[in-house]
Design a binder for these strands. Structure first.
Lengths: 196, 196
DNA sequence: ATTATCTATAGATCTATAGATAATGC
DNA sequence: ATTATCTATAGATCTATAGATAATGC
């Protein structure tokens, strides 16, 4: 390592992490090879094993960082907001400002390829970083009487799965469309579809 | 072929289709090998190529049948219902009565592995068989003034993505839980969360 | 001496093809 | 003759290891 500090943006290791994150997120664990990642970084495939002991370890490291990133982003997005509506809006904008996580795909297709231990680790991580914070928004709103009683974990799954599907529904439309859809979603969630 | 008619339940071809459907649905295109499928059927891997010219063609055939199956099941589930609420309930129960399609995973992870032509074919098929029928439920309800104005395609994405996430949220719970969650979802969709 | 790369390759798959073989139906 | 399987294998990957090499920092 030539220069300065660990995990700097241009250190070898973090360039590997960046490339791997981009590729794994875009195509999933099984569709990405170590060769693909090496090519993206601009080194030889075998050189990746200097930084990570296996493809699986690389995936786990990359994915935990991704979850942690969303954890911070989410907390930061909602901490100033004091109504559920504005919290949902900020949380939704946070998700839409980032490349999609494809959490459902990860849980369904990628995770089962990992060892039992790593599966547990990533499941716990996705829960702690992404699911729980969203669930808590709903729990708090319920305690404040802002919304009626309804299972908070169902609502969290609700919200997150809709966020995952938005990039698919609009499929390459204008940028503004996302914002409109988010507002429609929140209106439906809070006020329903029945005409007043 | 020893006995009777084409595509009988126990003809070789349809046993291949059954096994392939089960495996592809459970683990996705890339994580399933032709060897896995052959093993499940109880024949040798090379014998699969007597029935299908390639893994990709097998996947496409299997997936189109799956979509078509859901198309029929969906139409059948909602045709007798004359309010949106009961239609949504029946559609939801149809989906939950079947093994999950994992449509989001398919669109994100599996489809991009296919040729341009097959990608188009399956995209169109999923749209026609699954997305459009759900969208139409909302459109009709809107025309009847049953619900207020809101983009029907957004609502369809909404409904479908929530259906996909339900098996993940409850993760191995009691059977009755699904029905409770479906009811909560429909209540939220129609009446919102804001207390009256 | 440590860090970060490289070349070369072992060993394990995976898809797909070629050609043989057994059973059935006419 | 047709149908549905089999064995054997080519050819292409893919992950991971071994060992060489160049550059940097003390």
């Amino acid at each position: 390592m030539p220069l300065s500090n660990v995990s700097s943006v241009c250190s070898g290791r973090s360039r590997v992490i960046d490339a791997a994150e981009r590729l794994f997120r875009a195509r999933g664990y099984n569709s990405v090879t170590m060769r693909d990642i090496a090519k993206e970084v601009g080194i030889r495939q075998a050189s990746l094993y200097y930084h990570f002991e296996s493809k699986e370890q690389l995936f786990v490291a990359v994915t935990e960082l991704e979850f942690e990133h969303h954890h911070k982003g989410l907390q930061n997005a909602i901490e100033q907001q004091d109504t559920l509506r504005t919290q949902l809006n900020c949380a939704a904008n946070w998700f839409l400002s980032q490349p999609p996580v494809h959490l459902l795909s990860m849980l369904h297709t990628d995770m089962p390829c990992l060892s039992e231990e790593n599966l547990k680790k990533l499941s716990a991580s996705s829960r702690r970083c992404i699911f729980i914070p969203v669930q808590q928004m709903f729990e708090v709103a319920q305690q404040k009487g802002e919304i009626r009683s309804c299972r908070a974990n169902v609502l969290a799954g609700f919200f997150l799965s809709v966020m995952e599907s938005i990039p698919m529904v609009i499929s390459g439309n204008e940028v503004g469309a996302k914002q409109v859809i988010v507002n429609e979603m929140i209106d439906v969630l809070l006020d329903g579809l029945t005409p007043k």
